[in-house]
Design a protein around this nucleic acid. Sequence first.
DNA 1: ACTAGTTAGAGCGGTCTCTG
DNA 2: CAGAGACCGCTCTAACTAGT
Length: 170
Amino acid sequence: MTDSTAGPRAAAGKSEAAFRTISEVAEELDVPQHVLRFWETKFTQIRPMKRGGGRRYYRPEDVALLQRIRALLYDDGLTIKGVQKLLREKGVKALVGDPQPLPATLAEVEAPAVADDRAPTLPFDAAPAAPDAAVAGLSARQRQEIETALAELIALRDDLAAELRRQEAA
DNA sequence: ACTAGTTAGAGCGGTCTCTG
DNA sequence: CAGAGACCGCTCTAACTAGT
């Protein structure tokens, strides 16, 4: 599909760290969109950020988790309950094999892709040192709203970084 | 009956194009 | 440039199907 929300971002090509829409994740995993939404209802560990209108934005870690779930279901022949049990017992990180925590904070999501060459000149460097502590007392809804706003900021940052590189290359 | 999807439909939100 | 409208992608919910 032509992802209207991704627009120029998709056309310019996303970094590995970029957020993905459900259609992009569906294509990448070769799984229909409705199945991704169905899995979301079955696995509480799948928690894509949501923007206005409820649109999902999947972090790279979400995609990795979905890939693992897909492999367990389709390749290993496990049932959803089996995968749920596995997730409960071993945790997401053990399944995905990702030593890094989910980038639930701006500081964490900020790092990849453009960090090496561009980040020092970009405006998001002054992220709070320990935002996790700051949000510890917030409600789930408040956290969701913050994550949503965060996703928008990061998408904007990606756009700006890409545009900057285009202009420098020109 | 239970599991794992699949389908359909109404409505929302973003983008694009046209017009003034 | 700004507003209007069309178009398209996406959402949610509920009902349905196929296999075990």
